[in-house]
């Protein structure tokens, strides 16, 4: 699924777009608020949906190879988090949709979850 399609489905705001990444293809998604769990099961290049907006979300993305993070339930990160994402070249989005609805809508549109991707 193209990133701009995800932005459209979630009616998301772009908080930080390093280059023009709207054409980037996203193959899977993962939703969680606990970063250790994200680190445990997320796969490289997945979309991360989270309600947590601390700088550690950006570090989690960097360390696990995630390029796009979408904050759910209308939560907005601090300036520091956005600046850090710019430095690490990570795209940040924000949607008013709660986690449940965000997962539901993307899933309904065909974006699969991390555990549905067979191990390479």
């Amino acid at each position: 699924m193209k990133l701009n399609q995800i932005i459209q489905i979630l009616d998301a705001e772009i908080l930080c777009n390093v280059k023009d990444e709207s054409n980037v293809n996203i193959t899977m998604a993962c939703g969680a608020d606990l970063m250790s769990d994200v680190l445990a099961f997320i796969k490289s290049e997945a979309l991360l949906l989270t309600g947590l907006t601390t700088p550690q979300v950006v570090y989690t993305a960097e360390n696990s190879g995630v390029n796009v993070v979408c904050f759910v339930r209308g939560k907005k990160p601090s300036r520091e988090t956005v600046d850090l994402a710019k430095e690490k070249k990570i795209v940040l989005l924000a949607t008013k949709s709660p986690m449940f609805e965000s997962c539901g809508k993307l899933s309904k549109n065909g974006l699969i979850g991390c555990s549905e991707v067979s191990k390479q």
Binding site: G31, C103, S107, S115
Partner: peptide, 16 residues
């Protein structure tokens, strides 16, 4: 399954 998949399936069967 993980949260994304469980929420996706609940949404699919009509839970909103």
């Amino acid at each position: 399954l993980l949260t994304y998949e469980v929420a996706g399936r609940l949404y699919e069967i009509g839970i909103r």
